[in-house]
Every structure is written in C-alpha cells, then in structure tokens.
C-alpha cells in the first residue's frame, strides 16, 4: 500500500437517552426536546482514527446514516478534526434494523471507495446507546469482506506500507493480541483514548465545510426493498414499559444509632434468607481453620 492511509469512521447520531421519557399512558417515546449527540462510543473510534492520521498521514472520513439533522453531528466530527464528512440520508432508510443499516452503510462505503479511495480501516464504535446491538460493525465487515476486529482496546503496531497490523482485543477473561492485515474493520472499545479538542482553525474550517449528502440512488442502491423497514428481517411488534414489582421493599425502621440499625438490617437479611446466614457462617468457619 503506497497511498496515504484512509480511515472511515461510522458515527451515529443518537438521542441523549438519559433524557428520554416514556409516555405513561401510551408507552411511546416522547422525543420532545430530547437533544441528540454523537453516539459516545463512536468518539473513541474517531479519536483513534485521528491518532493514526497524526502518525501516518492520510485522511479521515466520517460517515453517518440518519436524518438531515444528523449533519450537526458530522460537523461536530469535523470540528474534532475529521477531513471530510458524508451523510447518507433517504426516507427509504427509515426503520432499518441492523441488517438493513449495514447494507446501506456498506453501499455508502463502496461509494466512498470510488470517490475518495478505498478505506484501509473502517472504524465503528463498540455499540450504539440506542440500538445497543454491536451488530452493525460486524455486518459491514462481512458485507465488504474486511477482516473483522471487534472490541479493540489498542492498536499496537501498524505498517501502512506492508499493511500488517497488531491489535489488542478485549476477550472474556483477558486480552487477545491479534496480528492481521489491512483492510480491516475495527470496533473500538470505550475508554481507549480521550477525544481531542479541535483548534480554532479546525473549528472555523469545520463550520464552513460542505458535508457531502447522498441518498440511496447516489450510492448505487437500486433494490429499495433491501432498505429500511422492508429490508429488515426483524420486526418490532410490541414496545412496553417494564412492569413494577407488585410489592415494594419492606422497610426496616432506622434505629437510634447506626450500630442498632446495622443489627436490625442483619436480622432482616437473615430472617428473609437463612441460607445466606448459613453460607456466611460456613465460610467464616472455614476461614478459621
């Protein structure tokens, strides 16, 4: 690979779920006034891409599929330092599940490859905070035939010329060290880095930059039945609020002193669950030997 490194970071604009409320009667989401943010996990991916660019040169493209208002999130990504931004937006994408999303995004990535050069690394976040599936990254990798590297905590080594790459991957009970080759799709683990703040020059350039906006046709999607609701094998049939537990907590009256309260609490625990008492005493007894 002799061309400069090209990374594409997939970012999603999501509602700030901390501020979502549920209509108590109809159980529908009240989106009124809920601000949107860049999916927080995607920022780790973006920062990692920017760091690679700092080290090896090249370009960082950010890609988002979403409504026209998602342009704000893309512009924000430019303010952090991304070089160009692409918004994939079409009403046919509404209601996409992960399969349909990864289809549309992979088509946009192919278009990016045609217009700006093939991506060497596609980054996604570990997962989104609204969909929360961690499936879109693997979906894109599979569709484009990229090596799939999920839950990456660190990029140890990259030889942009030979295309060799060594990464650390979070696995159950430990860290896998993997060696592989570009091109790859990386889903970045949270906490792996901290997002930078763009300089005033970057911020000014970002404020004036043109975001590339593509619809389905612009990325070569001909079969619209593969998009949106129609292209989604999963069907959400019912949305409902978690039921309240029928009985609330039995309250232990606070005593005059913390010591007295502590004994009341222990009595209540052991009263409810003699098994716990037995187990604790057993472990304590074993520890005595």
């Amino acid at each position: 690979m002799n061309q400069p490194l090209h990374s594409v970071v997939c970012i999603k604009q999501v509602p700030d779920s901390a501020q979502i409320r549920v209509h108590p009667v109809t159980n529908t989401i009240m989106r009124q006034g809920v601000p949107t943010i860049i999916n927080p996990y995607d920022l780790f991916a973006l920062e990692e891409a920017l760091r690679l660019r700092d080290r090896f040169g090249g370009k960082v493209t950010v890609l988002c599929m979403g409504p026209m208002t998602a342009e704000d999130s893309l512009r924000k990504a430019l303010t952090f330092g991304a070089d160009r931004a692409v918004l994939l937006s079409d009403r046919y994408f509404a209601g996409s599940d992960t399969l349909a999303t990864s289809y549309a995004l992979s088509m946009a990535l192919l278009q990016i490859a045609r217009e700006f050069g093939a991506p060497d690394i596609i980054f996604t976040g570990k997962q989104t905070i609204d969909g929360d599936t961690a499936q879109v990254g693997p979906g894109i990798a599979k569709r484009l035939g990229y090596n799939q590297l999920t839950y990456i905590s660190k990029i140890r080594d990259l030889d942009p010329d030979g295309g060799a790459l060594v990464v650390e991957r979070r696995a159950e009970g430990g860290t896998q060290v993997l060696q592989t080759k570009l091109p790859v799709l990386i889903t970045m683990l949270e906490g792996s880095n901290e997002m930078r703040r763009g300089s005033i020059e970057t911020a000014l350039a970002a404020a004036r930059a043109q975001v590339t906006i593509w619809n389905a046709a612009a990325v070569g999607i001909e079969d619209l039945t593969r998009c949106g609701l129609r292209g989604s094998p999963t069907i959400v049939k019912k949305v409902f609020a978690p039921g309240a537990r029928s009985e609330k907590a039995a309250m232990i009256g606070a005593e005059a002193t913390p010591e007295a309260s502590a004994h009341a609490v222990i009595d209540a625990i052991f009263g409810r669950m003699p098994a716990i008492e037995a187990q604790l005493f057993e472990t304590a007894a074993q520890a005595a030997y």
Partner: peptide, 9 residues
C-alpha cells in the same frame, strides 16, 4: 480570542 487558542479572530 477564544479558549481554543491559536490566533485571534
């Protein structure tokens, strides 16, 4: 001048 540093605007 702003908190992003750099040259004044």
């Amino acid at each position: 001048r702003t908190d992003r540093g750099g040259n004044p605007i």
